[in-house]
């Protein structure tokens, strides 16, 4: 199951990654962080095919998907 890494210093909560994910593996967090942004969180990472579209379309270089086997 792949793992989602969000750099909390860089993410501004535009949530483009959730919209562009073709398998809908991400969701918006229920909590607002200390900067006032809503960050993306893992919803169902079993569906993640590590296509990298979220990494390509992130405007703030904040997201990364780590490929984990098994």
């Amino acid at each position: 199951m792949n793992k989602l890494w969000i750099d909390e210093r860089y993410c501004k909560g535009c949530l483009i990654c959730i919209d562009v994910c073709p398998t809908k593996a991400l969701a918006a967090s229920q909590e607002i962080n200390s900067k006032g942004y809503i960050l993306p969180v893992e919803k169902d990472m079993k569906r993640c095919k590590s296509c990298g579209l979220c990494e390509v379309m992130c405007p703030d270089f904040a997201i990364a998907i780590e490929e984990v086997e098994g």
């Binding site: 890494w5 860089y10 501004k12 992130c58 270089f61 990364a64």
Partner: peptide
């Protein structure tokens, strides 16, 4: 922690402190 693959081409630290996050508005 894995980080964004393109961060290797960016200057994260400058002489006056960290340069990221980018100055642009969200989105």
């Amino acid at each position: 922690m894995k980080r964004h693959p393109m961060l290797k081409y960016l200057k994260e630290e400058g002489p006056l402190g960290p340069r990221l996050p980018l100055i642009f508005c969200p989105g």
